[in-house]
C-alpha cells in the first residue's frame, strides 16, 4: 500500500449502545492492529452488526470511545475504512456506475474514477458485467460488486457484515477467496458472521459476542481449540445460546 499514514490501530473502549430502552451493546472494548482478519462471532442479537456499524461511524455510541490512530479514520481528508453489508445496496445503475458513484462521492477526479473503476471491475472478475444493471445481477455478483466498490475506495480497514449469509456455497467460496486475497495484500478485515465453518476457515482472531458483551477475544486457533467461556463452548458445539 502507498499509504504513509495508517488509521490503525483502532482502539474501542467500553462501547455502549442503546435502542428502545434496551442496552444492545454493553461495554465492548478491543484493539484492532494492522493486518489480519478478525471475525466477530455470536448468536443473532449479540451485537455483532451494531459493533461494526459503530466502528464504521454509521451509529453514534451512547458512551465509550472509538478511537482511530488518525481522527475518525480519516487521513488527508479521505475516509480509510469501508463497509460491505449483508444485503448489498445496489444503486439503480450499471455495475461500473455503482463504483463510479462511490468514487465521485469521495471527490476523485474523473480520470482517477474511470481508472479505479476499471481496475476494480477487473480485479473482482466483473469486467464482463460492467454495463449490466447492478440490480439484475445474481446475489453473488452483487456482493462481489459491493466488495469491488469498497475496494476501489482504497480502505485500510474493511468491515463486512455477514457478507455471505444470503449466498449459495459456490458464491460464498468465491467471496471467501477474495477476502483471503485482500488479507494477503495487507488489508485489515473485520467480519461479522454466525457461520462457524466460515469463522474457522478465515479467522486469524475471534471476538465472541454474547448479549452485547464481549465474551472472548482470542487467537482463532486458541478459540476453536477450547473456548474459555461456557457460552462460547456451547455456541461452537452448535447449541442455542441465549
Amino acid at each position: 500500500m502507498r499509504d504513509t499514514l495508517s488509521v490503525l490501530p483502532l482502539t474501542v473502549t467500553d462501547l455502549v449502545f442503546e435502542a428502545g430502552g434496551r442496552r444492545l451493546v454493553d461495554g465492548i472494548g478491543f484493539t484492532l492492529p494492522q493486518g489480519g482478519l478478525t471475525v466477530l462471532i455470536g448468536p443473532n442479537g449479540s451485537g455483532k452488526s451494531l459493533t461494526l456499524r459503530l466502528c464504521h461511524g454509521l451509529l453514534t455510541p451512547h458512551s465509550g470511545s472509538i478511537s482511530w490512530a488518525a481522527a475518525d479514520g480519516i487521513v488527508s481528508g479521505v475516509k480509510r475504512h469501508a463497509m460491505v453489508f449483508q444485503k448489498p445496496v445496489m444503486l439503480r445503475r450499471s455495475a461500473r456506475a455503482n463504483i463510479l458513484h462511490a468514487l465521485a462521492a469521495f471527490g476523485l477526479s474523473r480520470g482517477e474514477r474511470t481508472a479505479r473503476a476499471a481496475e476494480a471491475l477487473e480485479r473482482f472478475g466483473l469486467a464482463g458485467l460492467a454495463d449490466r444493471p447492478a440490480r439484475l445481477m445474481s446475489g453473488g455478483e452483487q456482493q462481489r460488486l459491493a466488495i469491488a466498490r469498497a475496494w476501489a475506495l482504497r480502505p485500510q480497514v474493511l468491515f463486512l457484515d455477514e457478507p455471505t449469509s444470503q449466498l449459495d456455497p459456490g458464491a460464498t467460496r468465491q467471496i471467501e477467496e477474495m477476502l483471503m486475497a485482500l488479507r494477503g495484500e495487507g488489508m485489515t478485515l473485520v467480519m461479522a458472521t454466525h457461520d462457524m465453518g466460515q469463522a474457522r476457515r478465515l479467522a486469524d482472531r475471534v471476538l465472541f459476542l454474547h448479549r452485547g458483551h464481549l465474551g472472548e477475544d482470542a487467537e482463532a486457533a486458541t478459540f476453536f481449540a477450547g473456548p474459555a467461556s461456557t457460552e462460547a463452548r456451547a455456541f461452537i458445539a452448535g447449541d442455542l445460546v441465549w
Binding site: 464504521h56 454509521l58 469501508a82 453489508f85 445496496v89 462511490a102 462521492a105
Partner: peptide
C-alpha cells in the same frame, strides 16, 4: 434502502 451505503461513502443529509 440506500441510507447505510450512502452514509458509508459520506453522503449524509442533503448530499
Amino acid at each position: 434502502e440506500y441510507r447505510e451505503h450512502l452514509a458509508s461513502i459520506g453522503l449524509t443529509g442533503r448530499s
